[in-house]
Amino acid sequence: MKLILSSCFLQMQLSFSRSMFRYCLLVDPIFFALITYMIYKDSSVENFIAYVILGTGLSSLFNNIVFSSAGDIDRERYMGTLEMIFTAPGGFRNIILGKIIGNTLLGLLSMLVVVVFLNIFFGVNMKIASPMFFVMAMLLSVVSFIAISLIMAAIFTLSRNSRGLMNCISYPVMILCGFYFPITILPEWSRVFSYILSPTWAVKLLREAVYGIKDYSSFYMESGILLALSAAYIVLFIILAGVMEKRVRVKATLGVY
C-alpha cells in the first residue's frame, strides 16, 4: 500500500511538471468545453450542459489516463528505466497502479476546470438533481477508468507502437461511449462495442444523476453492469500482465526503443 501511495504521489508531481500533461489537464478541456458549448448553445437539445461538462470532463480524464499510461511506459523505456521498475522488488504492477491512480486523480481536475470556465465566461451552471448518486456514479467511474488504464498499460508495455495507438484511440471512445451525444444516434451494429466499454455506462449513470433519477432499479442495474465490466477489465489485466511479464523476459524487448 505504501509503495502504491508513493508511486501515486511521485507520479502526480512528475506528471504535473510536464507541459503536455498540463495541456491535457487545463488547456484541452477548456477548448473542448468552448467548442461543445458553442455547438450546443442554440440547439434544440435539452439539458445540453450535462453533455458539455460531463463529456469534456470524462473525455479529458480518459485522455489523461491513456496518454499517461502509454506515455509513461514510453518515457520509462526511452530513459532506460523501464527494466528497473519492471524488476523492482515492490512489483511492477503496484508501481503502475500507483502511477495510474495518480494520473486519474489529477485528471479529475479537468472537470472542475470546465465547470469553473463555463461559469466564469458564460455564466453556466450544472445543477445536479441527485448529488449523492452523482458521487456514487463518479466513484464507480473512477474505478472503471483505472481498470481500463491498467489494461492499456499492459498493452503498451508489450507494444512499442503505443504512441500511434495512443494518438488515435480517443475519438473512437468519445463516439462509441456517447460522451457528447447519445449513442442512439449511432448505427445499431456499433452499439455492441458501446455496451462492452465501461465509460458508456459511466457517462449514462452520471447523466442520470444530473437529470434526477427516475427509475432507481434501472440505475442500480446500470451500476452493477459498470462494476461487472470493471471487474472483467481487472481480470483481463491480470491475464495480460502474466502474458506480458513472460513475453518481455523471453523476447528481451523491454528496453528496446
Binding site: T36, S43, G164, L165, Y171, F181, P182, L186
Partner: peptide, 21 residues
Amino acid sequence: TSKIVGPIFQLLFFCLLTRYS
C-alpha cells in the same frame, strides 16, 4: 494510425456532434 485513422475518427466525431446538435 496518426494521419489516416486518427483524423477519420476526429472528422466522424465532429460531424456526428454537429449533426446531432
